[in-house]
Amino acid sequence: MIALIRYTFATALHTQRYLAPVLVFTALMGVLTVNGSGPLPPAYASSAGALFVGSTWLTIALMSLDDAPQRAIVVVSSGRSLKVLLAAIGTALTSCLVLMVFGLFFPLWVGDYEVVTAVDLLLGLEAQLTCALVGIAIGVLCSRLVFRRQGYALVAALALVMVTLFVKGMPPVNRLFNLMATTPDSAKLLAPTGGMLAIAAVILAGFTAVTQYIVSHKE
């Protein structure tokens, strides 16, 4: 699995397919968090939102690195197509962990916040991880493996991102943003955010299973 993740990372770096999603993430971070002040949870909601969009795009890019013949070679070399899928998810997750560090400390650097505690940082981590998992889940489902035509994949991904972001009260992303925008105390948000994180993990597992089912039937 580590070998597959290394291969996926190396391919992503050489093809530079990571550039656009990472630039979008940093641009959103700049727009949403520069000159922020007051309590930290709303700022971390912005970081999580930026990571949500960035992780979705990054995952779609990572899942489409190899063309069909090359993917077949990698699947044969590794033995199982599920391993290749999990490696792409692992690569996306590792990349998101790096972006999370940026999302965690960039608001502190460019903003002017009251008191910063370990609980604030933990909440920021939880919120970003939740959004990263949902973003990866959408990216996995809306990849070239499921949609043969890139246009349909893009429309499906946009639709899912919009629904997840803007349908009022819908867990985990919209509910999480509502909670973080209205509750300034990070300690009170830790438990509900943990719940959202669990839901996000279930969504990722479900979308991965559906994608693998479709892929194995196509192959």
Partner: peptide, 15 residues
């Protein structure tokens, strides 16, 4: 990615 690097990656994938 160079041919050598590609083969090295594939070799690692194959164990």
């Amino acid at each position: 990615m160079s041919a050598l690097a590609y083969l090295t990656h594939m070799g690692r994938v194959r164990g």
